[in-house]
Design a protein around this nucleic acid. Structure first.
Length: 273
DNA sequence: AACTCCATCAACCGCGCTTGG
DNA sequence: GCCAAGCGCGGTTGATGGAGT
């Protein structure tokens, strides 16, 4: 016999999450951590499948999420990484603490793609006027590549990249050689608090349970970190259809009761009751 | 003011790999 | 070793709000 099915989907809620559901999930995970997503909705009192809970936590509720639009520097780093890694969004996102793969994927599909297209058409115009037969894909990457240490302004970067393309360098190879330098710069915007949070989580496996401190109060300072400040979230009120507003996760954490229930205890309750 | 179009992004779907019985 | 379930990932969809007419 294998395991029990993840969810039967009958009687489970779908669509946008309400503030009540978010609160339940957030409270449960802060109090108990994550050991088994399949059990989370049951134990948290949610009519959602575990997969949906996991997605909501990873993409929206995680306290270490970095909110706000991606900066131009981040955008350029994404372009670099995409040139190296392709559509491996989770790998790309792992280089941006607090950013999710979904966020980066959406940003790529809605903005960067467009930006590259525009740049490519500019390059096409330019190259056709110059009677050159260079590879357009290479040019796109080169134009988008930030200068070392990301200090180069866009116009200067374009000038430099144009110069490089004239020099006939292989851009992807060039990017790979310089990647380590850029990688170290990606994290420079992190605050100490961000760092503490990251140090307390297992970034490789996304496994929060093993390193999750046992009290929610441990996280309160993290929510106060400026870099981590959570923007105002709008929710669709399930009862009235009216939108209600919550400022950030701080309020939730403050409101959380702290009767810690370990996963061991939960397992005992489940399997020995 | 009303309507249409478009951009954005949260959420879902399905596939493939991993893990446990 | 096999098979079924869990999980993570990438692609896609649909709801929403803003801009344009």
């Amino acid at each position: 016999m294998g395991r029990q099915p993840c969810c039967d989907k009958i009687g489970l809620k779908r669509g946008p999450w309400t503030i009540e559901e978010d609160h339940k999930l957030m409270t449960f995970i802060l109090n108990n951590g994550i050991q088994c997503w399949r059990m989370v909705p049951k134990l948290a009192g949610l009519l959602r499948c575990g997969k949906s809970c996991r997605l909501r936590w990873i993409n929206y509720l995680r306290p270490d999420l970095k909110r706000g639009a991606l900066t131009e520097i981040e955008e350029n780093q994404i372009i670099e990484l995409h040139a190296r890694l392709g559509n491996r969004w989770s790998k790309i996102a792992s280089h941006f603490p607090g950013r999710t793969d979904n966020e980066i994927k959406n940003h790529w599909n809605t903005r960067i793609k467009k930006r590259l297209k525009q740049q490519q058409s500019l390059v096409n115009d330019h190259s056709s006027s110059n009677n050159t037969d260079q590879n357009n894909d290479e040019l796109v990457v080169e134009i988008s590549r930030p200068g070392k240490g990301d200090q180069i302004q866009p116009a200067a970067a374009e000038e430099e990249s144009t110069k490089e393309s004239r020099d006939g360098q292989n851009s992807v190879h060039h990017l790979m050689n310089n990647y380590d330098d850029h990688e170290t710069n990606i994290c420079t915007s992190m605050t100490d608090m961000d760092y503490l949070w990251i140090m307390s989580t297992n970034q490789e496996t996304n496994n929060y349970s093993s390193n999750f401190p046992s009290t929610a109060s441990c996280y309160t300072p993290l929510f106060c970190s400026e870099q981590n400040s959570v923007s105002t979230n709008n929710y669709h009120n399930s009862t009235g259809g009216e939108e209600s507003t919550i400022t950030n996760h701080e309020q939730w954490v403050e409101s959380i009761d702290h009767p810690m229930l370990s996963w061991d205890a939960i397992n005992q309750q489940l399997f020995f009751s």
